[in-house]
Amino acid sequence: MKTILMLTDFSENATHALKSASLLVEKMQAGVLLFNSYYDHPIFPVYGGGAPVIEQLLLRKEESTVKLIKLTNQLKHMFARQSKNIFKPVIEYMVRKGSVYSNVQLLLKEKDVVMIVMGGSSNSSLEHLFFGCDTMEVISNSTCPVMVIPGKSAFNKLNKLTLATAFELSDINAITYLADLGKSIGFEIDVVHVSTSAEKDLLVQERAFLNHINALKDVRITYHRLQGKDVIKRLNRYCKENGSDILALVHYKQGFLSTLFKQSTTKKTLSGRHIPLMIIPFNNNLQQTSFELHEPVKQL
């Protein structure tokens, strides 16, 4: 069974993300697995002569389980209140000891996980993506897309997705993956090449991308260029102006987009209300496709 893995630490942002992701659950016709990690080893106080805080730690698993049951029931009631024709998913929960990263790696092997959902920071999903340790560990080692939903996001529709690209090779696979997903869900795709300057040496890569885009059938897809020094600010504004519901990008441990976002020091460009981020791993097993010559798509 296809499964959407929803990670929670029971924070307000995490709960918001889980409830917001109900749209994805319905569109992808997938089951839900709510998951929480805990540590069961004793923690010693920093002052000398103190006793180990064992009793509290022994209760962590039980507390996590109680919270997961409560959250599971909330999601079930939420789906039950919706229209009778809407898909009713199987919702399960699981709690395990250990780090989020190590447990996610096991779950990716044990389950047919098609997407991971997690909450973003209070300020910005982009800031949380590149500066949140737990988020980065999951994203850097995931074999499926990861959706980061910020706390202030109103994710109640899915009509348009914007994919930011720097003409990396794996972006071609991401376009194919998103095209297949777009056909099944019904959203249109806007592929945006972001750069800090006019790069004439990338004309060959651009032509290859345009050929690939135009070869895709039965999907609404457009292509644009986005140039300027403050790419993050321009990309945020662009997504707002074109009505995007999701911003997607391929995650590279070393790549133009990752370097660009990390170098940004203007936090005000990341603050406020942002749309969810879909991060596609660069080393995924998305279908490989060849480049064929076609007429370029229209550039608006």
Rank of each mutant, 00 (worst) to 15 (best):
A17P: 01
A17D: 02
L18G: 00
K19S: 13
K19T: 12
A21M: 07
A21D: 03
S22V: 03
L23E: 06
V25W: 01
E26S: 14
M28F: 10
M28E: 15
Q29F: 13
A30W: 04
G31Q: 08
V32L: 10
L33W: 01
F35D: 01
S37D: 00
S37W: 00
Y38Q: 00
Y38S: 00
Y39W: 08
Y39P: 03
D40H: 07
H41D: 13
P42N: 11
I43M: 13
P45F: 10
Y47N: 11
G49P: 08
G49H: 12
G49T: 09
G49V: 08
A51Y: 07
P52C: 04
V53D: 11
V53P: 06
V53C: 08
V53M: 07
Q56P: 05
L57G: 11
L58G: 14
L59G: 10
R60K: 13
K61P: 01
K61D: 00
K61N: 03
E62V: 07
S64P: 03
T65V: 13
T65C: 07
T65W: 09
V66R: 06
V66T: 07
V66G: 04
V66P: 00
L68W: 03
L68H: 01
L68D: 04
I69P: 11
I69L: 15
K70N: 15
T72Y: 06
T72F: 03
N73H: 14
Q74F: 13
Q74R: 13
K76D: 00
M78T: 05
A80Y: 11
A80F: 14
A80R: 07
S83H: 12
S83C: 10
K84T: 06
N85C: 12
F87K: 02
K88F: 09
P89E: 00
Y93N: 08
V95F: 00
R96H: 12
K97W: 08
G98V: 00
V100T: 02
V100H: 01
N103K: 01
Q105N: 08
L106Q: 14
L106A: 13
L107W: 01
L107E: 01
L108N: 00
K111N: 08
K111R: 14
K111M: 13
D112P: 03
V113L: 08
V114D: 01
M115C: 07
I116P: 11
V117D: 10
V117H: 05
M118N: 03
M118D: 04
G119M: 02
G119L: 02
S121W: 06
S121E: 13
S122F: 09
S125T: 05
L126P: 00
H128F: 15
L129M: 13
L129I: 08
F131C: 11
F131E: 03
F131K: 15
G132Y: 04
G132D: 04
C133S: 15
D134A: 08
D134N: 14
T135W: 04
